[in-house]
Amino acid sequence: MDHIFFFYFAAVIAATSLLVVALRNPVYSALSLLIMFFHVAGLYVTLHAEFLAAVQIVVYAGAILVLYLFVVMLLSIKSEERYHSQLPVAGLLGVMLCTEVILLFIQSRTGAAAPAAADPIAGPGNTEMIGEALYSTYLFPFEVASLILLVAMIGAIILAKKDINEPVQ
């Protein structure tokens, strides 16, 4: 049963991520990115990271993707040329990179068996453990992350508000 779920999620993730890169219309790309985010969340559930799965859906699918769709529709992009002029070089390097990755996977046989999953009902849950670690050991990085988000918010507002009176000819 685990295998069926894993291979389903993995296959859909690989296919939709390829579609994001290959599709011509940015709206279709954004929608296949949405499907990819949902299946990545499913992959987290098979890894017993339920809190991260919920965060993935709320933050990525709920917030980031809506932002992308807003911008795509705001700019009303006409279908332009899809690929970079460096496509042959990129293709050659990509094939080399892929062979390297495949060779690495064939050579490394780490058959690390999964630890026996703890009973999810007994003991502290996933969310509780993350919360405890986040607000005690990782309190300082947590505050830094909130500062980064604040800076990003202010920066985005200032950038998007700026009036360009004399555009480049």
């Binding site: 993730i13 790309s29 098979t46 690929y83 990129a90 990509g94």
Partner: peptide
């Protein structure tokens, strides 16, 4: 059980696809 290398393989495929997109697409949003 599913071995760790299977998850790492999915991650590698995903990373390679993203890198491909950054390198060959011209649309900034993509």
């Amino acid at each position: 059980m599913i071995p760790l290398s299977a998850y790492v393989a999915v991650s590698a495929v995903l990373f390679a696809t993203g890198l491909l997109g950054v390198l060959i697409r011209r649309n900034f949003i993509i």
